[in-house]
Amino acid sequence: MSFIDTVFAATNSLLSGALNTILSALFAIIIGTISGILLGFLLCYANRYFRFPVRLYVDIIRGIPGLVTLFSVYFFLGYFLQGYGIDLSPLISGIIALSAMCAADVAELTRGALQSIPQGQTEAGKAIGLRFDQIFFKILFPQAAVHILPPWVNTATEMVKGSTLLSLIGVSELLLTANQLVATNGNALSYYSLIGLIFFLLNSLIQFLGARLEKRLTFFTRIKGDY
């Protein structure tokens, strides 16, 4: 069978591999972004008792390799939870580990973006009698979001690429699917090129959406004259 024939024969495997890649990256990006923004907020505004554990978390996760985080979740957290009757499947473990990595990155991005906004704006908000939530949601966050977006797109594409780590705990995502096809059909270079192309397309889509969103956000902030 030629390479193209084997690809057609393995369409289902490749589709399910792509689905696992997309699912794990998508959930990691969503969960990681929401929790990362919350953590970044805590890093900026919480008192030191809350700030300290968050800082510790962010520094530890950012300071260790993704593979170590993944193995820690899969083997140690999985073992610990098993005692309570909770079974962490490889896919769920992978999503937790990727989300943890994404959250730590987004927390730092959020902290940096919020702290880059001049203190005077918060003071001005207070001076005209706005509450903290009003200052945060109407003045600070819309500006911070514009700063966060470009590096966030970078983090999101890293998550898609990082999902290949999940192959090591047995999640049949694109890389493991390619390895399985190589094992049966040879043609390693062709299969790796094929999944490389799929990854490139996925990440191009994220970059395209990010650019659109960035345009939109900067448009609004320009209209309001805040930026």
Binding site: A9, A10, N12, S13, S16, G170, S172, L176, N179, Q180, L181, V182, A183, T184
Partner: peptide, 14 residues
């Protein structure tokens, strides 16, 4: 495993 013929691998139907 799933990547070693003929020990453990995916057939054409996956």
């Amino acid at each position: 495993g799933s990547t070693n013929v003929p020990w453990h691998f995916k057939d054409a139907s996956g």
